[in-house]
């Protein structure tokens, strides 16, 4: 029996007012179904609305049109079934590493002792147990992102919403964290929506890659990545099919860039102008 879609996105659109009173269409006519346990990457140039799509899935930003259903229920706001991981980590700077990871559990009414034990177990898994009492500012970027991932995994969301999570890291750290994420995913098989502009990252991690166009953001095409798992980077790099996927996606992205250049340049839209969702 086929699993029902974890996430169903229908005719989804987002537009907002920009300076001068005009409306900018960020996203238009997005149709996408994501199966339970599937790893889907959203690939596109900056400004194509891929982060906005993720924010709407998280319930942080309300859609202008269309609908999103998660496990058959329409999204009306944020919820612990969808855990975000942001490029900027968004850790609570006033809390220690342990305090950050305990946060979700405490908010959901888990007792202090149990929350501490579960958070410590998770920190052991991401090799940060000895940094439990550190503040985020005392950690490197890679460690901070590991803490952010642990903070989200702590409340065990069915879906992970990752917004260019490794975009702010150096190449080596990025590779390490990609491997760690794959290990976690291969163990837990959570549904993952992974926003990125890195082609090889998308191919390495995903079951499917959604390629977006810009202005307005639409789905250009969806590419199935039929590579065996567990994936090992060193093996993939010499794998013919892996290379073909990378080349195919690079070409698609190149096309998107050319199409964009043919049109008059659209006004850049700052991410921070988005209206924050309220509950």
């Amino acid at each position: 029996m086929e699993k029902r879609a974890m996430i169903e996105i229908q005719r989804l659109g987002k537009s907002f007012r920009i300076a001068g009173g005009k409306r900018h269409v960020a996203l238009e006519g997005i149709d996408l179904n994501i199966r339970e346990g599937e790893f889907v990457s959203i690939l596109g140039p900056s400004g194509c609305g891929k982060s906005t799509l993720l924010y709407m899935l998280g319930g942080f930003v309300p859609p202008s049109s269309g609908s999103i259903q998660v496990q058959g229920r329409p999204v009306t706001g944020p919820g612990p079934d969808r855990g975000p991981v942001f490029q900027e980590f968004a850790l609570f700077p006033w809390k220690t590493v342990l305090g950050n990871v305990m946060y979700g559990l405490r908010q959901q009414g888990v007792g202090k002792r149990e929350a501490r034990e579960r958070a410590m177990a998770l920190l052991h898994k991401v090799n940060l147990a000895s940094y439990a009492d550190f503040y985020p500012k005392e950690l490197s970027g890679g460690m901070r992102q590991r803490v952010a991932i642990a903070r989200t995994l702590a409340y065990d969301p069915a879906t992970l919403l990752m917004d260019e999570p490794f975009g702010a890291l150096d190449a080596h750290t990025r590779t390490v964290l990609q491997n760690e994420l794959l290990q976690i995913w291969e163990r837990d098989r959570k549904t993952v929506m992974f926003v990125t502009h890195g082609v090889d990252e998308a191919v390495f991690l995903s079951d499917r890659v959604v390629v977006m166009t810009r202005s307005p953001g639409r789905i250009r095409t969806v590419v199935d990545i039929d590579l065996p798992r567990p994936r090992v980077r060193a093996e993939l790099l010499v794998d013919r099919r892996y290379q073909e996927y990378v080349v195919e996606l690079e070409r698609l992205i190149e096309d998107v860039h050319h199409e964009r250049d043919a049109e008059p340049a659209p006004a850049p839209v700052a991410k921070t102008t988005l209206k924050v969702a309220t509950r």
């Binding site: 998280g58 944020p78 975000p84 900027e88 908010q107």
Partner: peptide, 15 residues
């Protein structure tokens, strides 16, 4: 930073 609040709401914290 809105993402701090988003992180909290997603973690199950009420408004």
């Amino acid at each position: 930073e809105p993402k701090l609040l988003w992180s909290a709401w997603a973690a199950g914290s009420g408004r």
